[in-house]
Design a protein around this nucleic acid. Structure first.
Lengths: 210, 210
DNA sequence: CGAATCGTTGAGCGAGGTCAAGAAAAGTGG
DNA sequence: CCACTTTTCTTGACCTCGCTCAACGATTCG
């Protein structure tokens, strides 16, 4: 989980609700998140909130800053976070290995966002929540943070609502339905997925878990 | 609108409904669109379709292929298209100028997608359509393709529905409302926006036109 | 142990979807 | 240029999924 080699590394900690970045500020570092969750979001004038990205352990936040991007939306910690700061100007300084990781991270972000556009534009409440839980589980799994069929899931139902474009109340009802259908077990911030293929299908996602 | 210098350039033409790329195929070129419109989309099993990107004259399609990305969704021509093909492997060969244009194009795509996640997740029908029309007009304008307060708008109401996550019927009703409110004039594939600031506001977008 | 925060459930409502049918454009071939 | 077909646009009637409002129970945290 080290940052770019040959560049000063700094360990940084954030507390829940603490900002990692604010809209339009020029960042001088991006983060490689060692531990904890964060999210990017936009708040509309009347209080509507939409989360547009989740950052899980092992993720870069935000990889495209190294290409000259700057925060167009705010980023806030959901849990306690331990991260490594990587200077944004370090593009040429990094090892090819880390350059590659950052670039593939940029590509993954574009693809994940495109998948979520489909979900927010065209899917039902159950499909949306299923998509989120698949996404979370598979990403945690890829980082070696799933145990059996379970992983940590620190999002509140309000967070889930702001990712899926629903209301907290309807998220609650949808989760109840999914529990009844034996699609998920979710309690005290811990998620268990008895049958991942079934959950993916109920999310209207392609069978191949990539 | 030239591609990367010192690399063989090829002019390519597409007809409406012709594919520029199909899901999961490895592309060997990306396109700089000289003229015409295209879109990226996903089709769900039961026929639901969501458009996840529009490509207008002057746009790269898709810029992140040069970083090693490959099509995760299909891309199809909406109108007749004239484009320049740019080899995907040409990353290091291009001039710094064109490298910069491609990278900033990647960043724009991430930011535009994040904005659309907010719109699809949290906005009303009228706000969605207003966002689309602002987006289209401002992009055309930046490419010198707006004339007075007008620009070309070749999307059908069904296309608009598939961008905004609505049904064609409801897009129609929403456009009628917007016409009555004097927010837009839209007829025979031609869009006029009497008051862009007002339209942006009705789209719940920040006042600054960037 | 008190105070937030978070989760759960019910009742009623409304924005947008569905179904259907016809009018207007736009494309096609003779 | 004109029949013919196909696509696109428009409008009405009705319905449903998810939202709103509200109250209360369960957790979590200081």
């Amino acid at each position: 989980m080290a940052g770019l080699a040959a560049v000063a590394e700094e360990r940084i900690f954030f507390r829940p609700h603490q900002y990692l970045a604010r809209e339009a500020e020029r960042p001088d570092v991006l983060y490689c998140i060692d531990e904890g969750w964060a999210c990017r979001f936009r708040l509309l004038g009347d209080g509507r909130r939409q989360i547009t990205a989740l950052f899980l352990p092992g993720d870069y936040c935000e990889p495209h800053w190294i290409l000259g991007g700057r925060p167009a939306q705010s980023i806030v910690a959901i849990t306690n976070i331990r991260a490594v700061a990587i200077p944004c100007g370090a593009w040429r300084d990094g090892t090819p290995y880390h350059q590659g990781k950052l670039l593939s991270s940029v590509i993954s972000m574009i693809e994940r966002q495109a998948d979520w556009l489909v979900t927010l534009g065209r899917k039902t409440a159950l499909e949306r929540v299923a998509h989120l839980l698949c996404d979370v589980y598979e990403r945690m799994s890829r980082s070696g943070l799933s145990y059996g069929q379970q992983c940590s899931m620190p999002l509140t139902q309000m967070d889930i609502a702001d990712v899926t474009g629903l209301t907290p109340v309807h998220v609650n009802r949808t989760l109840q339905t999914m529990r009844t259908m034996k699609l998920i077990e979710l309690q005290s911030k811990w998620l268990r997925i008895p049958d991942l293929a079934a959950l993916r299908q109920s999310a209207a996602l392609a069978p191949a878990p990539r």
